[in-house]
Simulated scan of single mutants.
Amino acid sequence: MNSYKLLIFDWDGTLMDSVDQILYCMRAAIGDLELEPRTGQQIRDIIGLGLHEAVETLYPGREPEFAQVMADRYRHHFLSADVTVADLFDDVDILLEQLRSSGYLLAVATGKGRTGLDKVLNETGMGAHFHTTRCSDETRSKPHPLMLEQIMNELDCLPEQTLMIGDSEFDLDMANRAGVGSVGVSHGVHSCDRLVSHNPLGCLDRVADLHSWLSDELSKSA
């Protein structure tokens, strides 16, 4: 088992229990534009993609300007003071403190835009834990590997030193394309039954269990 140097986390559904918040904002944007509704599962299945890619998946074949208009309406609702702030999953703050104390480099690779990620990092106070972050509006959307490649280059880490942790098939597919190991977590949008098809090294019920999982894996290789 590799001794990892860099741990890259997805945000929504992995560190933050924000699925209901995303569902609300997307449904509100759909209502604003009087579009044909989409089911909760259809919306859950696009969580993790960049916002433009998510819109194009939900409403394919529209004119290019449509994705921008809908993305703007989604951001309006997400950034509104009326939207309830989502909570971190239990013990995420403890996990990140443990991992930093153990010497890991920590990063975020998210389908959020920069404004949205900075907002939640500020609200939760978690920004100081991460050595770098990358958002979908700064690079290619998942599952393209560019997001991971840029983070590894910035922090001078090799794929074999890097582990991606995420709750969606997009996260694990991206890791595979980048030649990076992955761990799935099942408390977000996709179940372990779906995640295992992308061959993660493990699938956890809680992201807070990652530190003990890493310790167990290291002890096996000792």
Results as ranks from 00 to 15, higher is better:
145 P>V: 06
172 L>N: 01
118 D>M: 07
118 D>A: 05
151 I>Q: 05
138 E>Y: 12
114 R>P: 00
171 D>V: 02
171 D>I: 02
148 L>T: 02
149 E>C: 09
127 G>M: 06
140 R>F: 13
121 L>G: 06
128 A>Q: 12
175 A>N: 10
169 E>T: 11
163 L>E: 07
148 L>G: 06
122 N>W: 11
131 H>D: 15
165 I>L: 14
127 G>Y: 12
174 M>V: 02
119 K>D: 11
175 A>V: 06
158 L>M: 11
113 G>F: 01
132 T>A: 15
179 G>E: 11
150 Q>M: 14
134 R>T: 04
182 S>V: 02
136 S>I: 00
184 G>D: 02
156 D>P: 00
141 S>C: 09
141 S>I: 05
124 T>C: 05
169 E>C: 05
134 R>W: 00
133 T>R: 10
175 A>E: 10
154 E>D: 13
128 A>P: 00
136 S>R: 03
184 G>W: 00
169 E>W: 02
174 M>P: 00
131 H>C: 06
180 V>H: 03
165 I>E: 05
133 T>P: 02
165 I>H: 03
128 A>Y: 11
186 S>M: 06
152 M>Q: 10
135 C>H: 06
125 G>I: 04
138 E>H: 11
173 D>N: 11
141 S>K: 04
138 E>W: 12
179 G>Y: 11
128 A>T: 09
144 H>W: 07
169 E>V: 08
148 L>E: 05
153 N>H: 13
162 T>W: 09
118 D>C: 01
125 G>M: 04
161 Q>W: 12
168 S>A: 14
129 H>G: 00
146 L>G: 03
130 F>E: 06
158 L>D: 09
158 L>W: 08
160 E>L: 03
122 N>E: 14
123 E>T: 04
163 L>M: 11
121 L>I: 09
131 H>T: 08
147 M>A: 10
148 L>D: 03
134 R>L: 14
115 T>Q: 14
173 D>M: 15
183 V>T: 07
141 S>W: 09
130 F>M: 09
158 L>R: 13
154 E>W: 04
181 G>C: 07
153 N>D: 14
184 G>L: 02
110 T>C: 06
169 E>G: 13
126 M>W: 05
130 F>W: 09
167 D>M: 12
169 E>L: 08
148 L>Y: 11
174 M>N: 03
118 D>E: 15
147 M>C: 06
145 P>Q: 06
145 P>E: 10
120 V>L: 05
170 F>C: 04
176 N>Q: 15
123 E>R: 15
110 T>G: 07
109 A>R: 03
148 L>M: 13
121 L>P: 01
140 R>E: 14
164 M>T: 03
161 Q>N: 14
132 T>G: 03
150 Q>H: 12
150 Q>N: 13
160 E>A: 11
163 L>W: 08
168 S>Q: 01
169 E>K: 13
185 V>F: 04
186 S>I: 01
117 L>H: 07
159 P>H: 09
142 K>I: 06
129 H>N: 11
169 E>I: 11
141 S>H: 12
145 P>D: 10
143 P>R: 13
